[in-house]
Design a protein around this nucleic acid. Structure first.
Lengths: 329, 329
DNA sequence: CTGAAAGCGCTTACAG
DNA sequence: CTGAAAGCGCTTACAG
């Protein structure tokens, strides 16, 4: 392996000088710079990041923890972050928990050991253990997708989005609106969205029946099952199904079509997330679109503020949403 | 920051001993080990990977270059690699080129600077510049998805898969089979699949008309456009469309349905890749399923062989495929 | 404008 | 079973 010492020797200067030309710091004569550059070019030398980091305590790497890499959500968020980091010489180190909660904590630790400069976590829960781990982190952490008091977070207005969607359904004349939610450990999806739905229903004086409330686990299959239970127990009384996520909405959509109901004639189906498949099916799913790219870039910019030691970094940025009305209502 | 020296002092031993208990190497008395462990526990000490790597020249990190993170293909491949690496203490550093070819080379360089132990590249082309970069790499490189002579690669049998699919269409009585391919810089998708299609056609004595051959760019939209051109110029003569990828197949599917044709009554549509959406639409798309998880795990295992300096690592592993017949034929 | 020297936090022969 | 010392490849005051 070729090192800074080799370059120094070949260029006939000290390694201090080589370091200076590499980093363009301090004074270096034009002649020395030229010679060093030439040698670097010839040899294809690249400085060891480890040695450098060991000295400077900086890695220019931001660790990103994703729940799942295969989703639109993840890729769009990462793209948003990339757009900010790329220009300023930062790199992203991606890890994925594959939806295992325990791994969020594990990866938080692993990334710190790798000496990343900061960590952006796309969170799926607000467990106390997670919050504790974040608060005791040596490096700045920015959370996306969940609100955590005292931790800089970028979130969507899940409550308002769900309320708006429910109102659309009510405007369209639906009254018996079933809801497919998820576990409440996920505050954003499990709690906020449900609250938005319930609030809209209450405001319009519609009493929500027990049989209308179902729960899934984010998967398409669980949406299918939930729709089945809902339509069986309330014996076809439901005239709309609101799924907290597009994937579960897709499952519900499939159950409903398979069992001879017309969408939206008999039952309307809506989701949240604007996935590719939701746009593609016929009738296309009405959904809420979140600006994931923006979430990514806002998170990245927040991280940079933290890294630059800015004091007044607000610990909560709420992003907008857009209602996308399609054929399923 | 707390270092190995602090631990040594607190535990009343030398840092050599601390190093030994951390890495479980050499002899350490039970008493010393206990004391050191206790101190590590209390302080929450974690060794600096940079310092460690600087000494050992090992990082236990494998860099992975993905063309796009949002696809099923990518996530399944990464999962396959994870299943191998997780057990043996290796971590994955993910980067994405977002389909820009130049970035494959750039990332190859960046990862080497980060001193990863090896690089797995999910390749989209076999440009000479790329091959050169790979061959001059300081660390082992394994390529997935493209055949590169002299470079260990894991590939699918694209030629056989396309031929098999074409034969299915012919068995079903189709004769005028249109083909939507991609640029030939991509040997696997652009060249091999087309060759398989052409071979099957030739073997069955069907002459392929110019108007049946179209080209797209992997996107859904390009499949739509290609189908449009195909059905217009050959004035409805085509009775099947074979798209080299599911996404383009989806586009074709959409065009065909929108223009009043029945699938599969008037036109059959098939793809390759087994994407989620392809399964979900009605009629569901007939496709080829590749074992991406297996590709990932095979690539990971090949990497480990390379890292362990094994001599007889075959530089070409060809994976199987499965024909998934659904409603679109 | 340039270089010698110290030091970042580890591991690993070597000697005991 | 244990420790002193050298060294991995850099950067950065400090002195000239």
């Amino acid at each position: 392996m070729i090192t800074i010492n080799d370059i120094a020797k070949l260029a006939g200067v000290s390694r201090t000088t080589v370091s200076r030309v590499i980093n363009s710091t301090g004074y270096v004569s034009e002649k020395a710079r030229k010679r060093v550059m030439a040698v670097i070019e010839e040899t294809g030398y690249v400085p060891s990041q480890h040695a450098k980091s060991l000295r400077t305590k900086e890695t220019k790497i931001i660790g990103v923890i994703l729940p799942k890499i295969s989703t639109d959500t993840s890729s769009r968020t990462v793209n948003g972050m990339n757009s900010v980091f790329e220009g300023i010489g930062y790199q992203i180190l991606l890890t994925t928990t594959d939806l295992e909660r325990q791994k969020e904590i594990e990866h938080l630790r692993l990334l710190q050991n790798r000496q990343v400069d900061g960590i952006i976590l796309i969170a799926t829960n607000v467990d106390q253990a997670l919050v504790d781990e974040i608060k005791s982190s040596k490096v700045p952490v920015v959370v996306v997708g969940q609100e955590m008091s005292g931790v800089p977070s970028v979130i969507f207005d899940d409550h308002a989005a769900a309320r708006r969607m429910t109102e659309l359904l009510i405007e369209k004349g639906r009254r018996s609106i079933g809801y497919i939610g998820v576990d409440e450990a996920d505050r954003s999806v499990g709690v906020q969205r449900k609250a938005g739905y319930l609030e809209a229903m209450a405001q319009h004086g519609i009493e929500v029946e027990d049989a209308w409330m179902e729960k899934g686990d984010f998967s398409i299959g669980s949406g299918y099952e939930a729709a089945a239970r809902m339509l069986e127990t309330s014996s076809g009384k439901v005239d709309a199904v609101f799924a907290a996520t597009d994937r579960m909405g897709l499952g519900a959509w499939r159950y409903i079509r398979r069992h001879g109901y017309d969408i939206p004639g008999d039952v309307a189906v809506v989701g949240i997330g604007s996935s590719e498949t939701s746009r593609f099916i016929e009738p296309a799913l009405t959904t809420i679109e979140y600006e994931y790219e923006q979430a990514g870039s806002v998170a990245a910019r927040t991280m940079m503020q933290l890294l630059q030691g800015e004091k007044d970094v607000s610990d909560k940025k709420v992003l907008d949403f857009k209602l996308v009305e399609r054929d399923s209502v």
